[in-house]
Design a protein around this nucleic acid. Structure first.
Lengths: 233, 233
DNA sequence: TAGCAAGAAAATATCGATTTTATTTAACTT
DNA sequence: AAGTTAAATAAAATCGATATTTTCTTGCTA
């Protein structure tokens, strides 16, 4: 394991909580009681609060003044906005990445793709595997590293993390796309390394939008019980 | 005044501290002692810490594990990256804004521009006026509201706020650009409202890059004492 | 005098308790 | 029985104090 020892207690709780959130442990919109989390991690309220504040800044959690924190509630509107933002930013950065990336960038992309390919998609319980999620994020991140823009990279990553919150509530349909997704990734990687900017951008756009479309279809299938899976109309 | 009463103590300190930071009160890179700020605002360390954590999330402050917080240090590299990110995002959003904005958007742009025009650029002491800064940010924000994308708007605003940190350390040269800046704003507003997307994008790009160029020239003029104004090579 | 080490001082990170605010429950009115 | 108010409970926000860690100071050594 490459788990760097957290310098501070708060940092550790932040990281763990973040992993839980991105792992789909909590129901979207559900309340996060500070005391409970504090005792669970064996720390004081202060450190939970600090971790929460940080997560709120990233948009994974929402702060409700005088009412604590809750997991960011999902909505169709936000999913559409999020998708739009992701497409706009990730494609722009990918274009620059392809234009400026060197050999080390190509290698990173190929390596990340290889790792992704070799990682199982779901766990036994049918949930998104943590390892796959990590590899997936790493792959998309690698695509953008050629642009050498820390700011843009981190913005893109943050948005991608947010959209991960949505993906844990649709694993049913996601399974149907299993084969497609792998092909899409291979396609994107190949086009990027071949320096076909427009092709890669198109493939990435479709990749992102296809996921959203699947999520929307799933949300719609839940005619009324949108609440049940945490997606409010 | 439209100053909404802060729901929570922490919120109030956060807002005040934020205003101070964007107002150029502190030297970039300087240490922010929690105890001092706490007593100054008459609150406990906890609330200062929470405010700081939030500001760190926005990039206005930097958290140094076990060593507290400092104002985000400035660097030429970061300024270049920041500019690049701003140009990329702001122009993309502006394009969409011009494409989708309705009459209410046009009105908002015109109103914001009018306010900006009527606001004094600097204070007596030669510092950037708080009122002008606010009007300036509001104008640039108004330009993007037509896109109707909360996420993209807030990302753009956050980046613009970060770049504001740089602008307080170059007011000397900024004065030379006084007339130009006003003309640039008028130009951008007119092109946007006239739905000349490409023209507006070009004008906005130049506007942003011109400011950066001025800052870089200023930084370079400070041959050695980059440290003195908080800009490290 | 420069460099290092030990001790003192200061500052941060964390805790446990208090105060304040929201939420639930229960009693009461119409 | 529905709605409303009031007490009781639970939770969050804040505080003041303690434990750690860093930073500064001072005295020593080469």
């Amino acid at each position: 394991m490459t788990a760097t020892e957290p310098k501070t207690h708060s940092e550790g709780v932040y990281a763990s909580l973040r992993a839980e959130l991105l792992g789909g442990t909590f129901l979207p919109g559900s309340k996060l009681r500070l005391a409970g989390i504090g005792t669970r991690y064996g720390v004081s309220l202060s450190v939970v609060r600090e971790a929460m504040t940080r997560l709120a800044g990233e948009g994974l959690v929402r702060a409700l003044p005088q009412r604590g924190f809750c997991v960011t509630p999902l909505s169709v509107d936000d999913l559409l906005d999020l998708t739009r933002a992701r497409v706009l930013i990730e494609t722009s950065v990918l274009r620059e990445s392809i234009g400026q990336g060197g050999l080390e960038w190509e290698s990173a992309v190929i390596a990340a793709h290889h790792t992704l390919q070799g990682t199982t998609y779901t766990t036994d319980e049918g949930h998104l595997g943590g390892a796959w999620s990590a590899a997936h994020q790493a792959f998309h991140r690698a695509l953008l590293t050629g642009a050498k823009s820390p700011r843009l990279e981190s913005i893109a990553t943050e948005l991608r993390d947010c959209s991960l919150l949505y993906q844990h509530w649709s694993i049913g349909i996601a399974r149907d796309l299993d084969r497609d997704v792998a092909a899409e990734h291979r396609n994107i990687a190949e086009l990027a390394v071949a320096r076909d900017a427009e092709g890669a951008v198109k493939a990435l756009t479709e990749h992102i939008e296809r996921t959203t479309a699947a999520l929307l279809a799933y949300a719609e299938a839940q005619t009324d019980p949108g609440r049940a899976v945490g997606i409010s109309a």
